[in-house]
Design a binder for these strands. Structure first.
Lengths: 348, 348
DNA sequence: GCGTGTAGTGACATCGGTGTCATGACATCG
DNA sequence: CGATGTCATGACACCGATGTCACTACACGC
């Protein structure tokens, strides 16, 4: 492998001049430059990043830790997709920058993370992005001397910069649209109560009611997330048994909505004629395939990835603080025909 | 960032001794070792890969080029999945090795490949794996001085080591199973005729017939792959109009099989009672969801990734030649209820 | 004509590890 | 007891870039 010395000798100049041509550092004579460039291409010269890093301490590397690849969706299972989208967004930004993105996959073992970080440190990455599989708290240990970190889809308690989906606004927007369509009794089958997403979305649900001056009926909100079907069947039963049952039911995700279609069909309840349904995630393999297609909300994963990348670049450049409140990125409601207006409604 | 000199000073030894502790190079006294290790953890020392690479010219890096991330499946579209599985397989192997995998995504622009290779060369990767999105020929230019390359899911004409799915054997196995189940008239709706997969699988289809001593009816093989539905409808029409129509129809992939379900249902033909169907790919989101579930073949993408990785390691270690015929990896038939036996058959 | 500035170039040290070789202290063997 | 070998360690050069400084021309302004 040719070195800068070989090029220098071949071009009849000093190594430093070759370096100047490489980096456009300082003025170089027209003829000299040409001679150097010729020599470089003749020898197939590629500068050694290692040597460059040693001197300048700038590796040009950004590390990214994710489970995106090992969590590949299978069975039409949407887990793993958010991470992939976030990684796409990150790539989007770094593809245009003079930084190289090193992607490392945890292989689903979060205990492997410290070893990945250590490898990244050996390579002297200038920054690190950690992508989580779902919106949650994390404890990403940063020791002094570690490169700056940006968290995507997760957050910690020590103020590490973090980019999160705005679950609250998303649910708020969705419910507001339902209210605008005339719905007044809005059921909500939530994900597990311990999840951050559930807490935030429930707040969004409340916000929308408060904004519209609608009373809040706690019986409308039912936890219904389990692997078996029982909790959902029970929760649906409770909703339908209410004196004033819901005219629309929101679900914690699109899979739950899909199951709800089945449950309602079993009971002979037509969607959306008798009950409207809304999902969450806009997992298109489900939302577009169901009949009727599913109204849902999309979380802005690609955009989160982009923002995480830009944030990290700003921190590295020193134009942004290395710690702040999380940034929350909202996403759009995707309106499809699983929701109809309600007779006598103001809107629709 | 602490250096080996800082550690040496803190431990009261020479830098070289610290290096020996790091690499377990040469015997080091018990007490000395402990003193060095203490100093390292006290200072949070992480060795610089750059410096190591300079001296030893071993970067410990393996480059991987793929479109896996940017080709993320969406709409339940299975494109992009093969690449992800291959990358998973590659990771599987390198996760256990003292090599770091650098994944670079093309972002769907194959013209960006040379620039990725150049970046990898700057980082002095010890080897390169190129993963293609579908089985095809490629022209991955290797210049002298480039690191060794292994191709996955593609091949070239200059003998670059290559790991391919064994489309021929796969189709052979599938058709042999169909014959064993009593089928004698086996329709085949192929992918585009120009694809390598189609050529190879058609050979496999022929092999199975020859092996069983069955005559080959060219009318049974129909190209039917387009984005619009017309060619498939026409091809199906031709098959059904034959004096002896097929008792089972093989499809070029699972999506085609899914469409075939629809076409047959429209004509009132029951699957599998009147016609059996077989797909290809075992794209489970489709194959397991259809009713009846689809008999299909699975291409061994993860295994291909593993073999590509091991192959590259062998080449780097010098225990394998850097050029040979492609390795073809077979995959299993996945038998589900879309195929029934035929009355009076020997088997089933 | 002399100081000042700038284009163009090279010598040399340096970044942080590791390979090579040398050295001293003991242990082992014939 | 001297030759030989092994353990444990250090001195020093070197990998391939780049930062610093110095130097030579030549142009420009006064």
């Amino acid at each position: 492998m040719a070195t800068i010395y070989d090029v220098a000798k071949a071009a009849g100049v000093s190594p430093k001049t070759v370096s100047r041509v490489l980096n456009d550092d300082a003025p170089v004579g027209r003829d000299t430059r040409k001679a150097v460039q010729d020599a470089m291409s003749r020898l197939g010269y590629v500068p050694s990043n290692a040597a460059r890093v040693m001197r300048s301490n700038k590796s040009g590397l950004i590390g990214l830790i994710t489970g995106a690849i090992s969590n590949t969706p299978d069975h039409g299972d949407p887990r793993g997709l958010p991470e992939l989208y976030i990684v796409q967004g990150v790539q989007d930004v770094f593809g245009r920058e003079a930084k190289t993105l090193m992607i490392s996959d945890t292989g689903g073992h979060s205990d492997r993370v410290p070893s990945l970080v250590s490898t990244f440190r050996q390579h002297r990455v200038e920054g690190l992005i950690y992508v989580a599989d779902y919106h949650r708290q994390t404890r990403f240990e940063v020791r002094p001397g570690d490169p700056p970190v940006v968290l995507a889809n997760c957050y910690d308690t020590v103020g590490t910069p973090s980019i999160l989906p705005d679950d609250r606004i998303c649910q708020h927007r969705l419910v507001a649209r339902l209210i605008a369509a005339g719905h007044r009794r809005i059921g909500y089958l939530t994900l597990g109560a311990s999840m951050d997403a559930t807490r935030l979305r429930t707040e969004g649900y409340r916000d929308a009611h408060a904004e519209a001056g609608l009373p809040l009926d706690p019986a409308m909100i039912q936890e219904a997330y389990r692997d078996d079907h029982a909790p959902m069947t029970a929760a649906l039963g409770r909703l339908l048994a209410l004196p004033e049952p819901p005219t629309v039911i929101c679900c914690g995700n699109d899979e739950m909505a899909m199951r709800l279609y089945g449950l309602l069909r079993t009971r002979g309840i037509e969607v959306p004629q008798r009950i409207s349904i809304a999902g969450f995630d806009n997992y298109r393999a489900i939302a577009e395939t169901l009949f009727p297609p599913l109204t849902t909300v999309e979380l802005p994963y690609r955009e989160m990835g982009r923002q995480a990348a830009r944030r990290l670049l700003d921190i590295i450049a020193g134009t942004a603080p290395a710690a702040t409140d999380p940034v929350r990125v909202p996403g759009p409601v995707v309106w499809r025909s699983s929701v109809t207006g309600v007779a006598g409604a103001a809107g629709t």
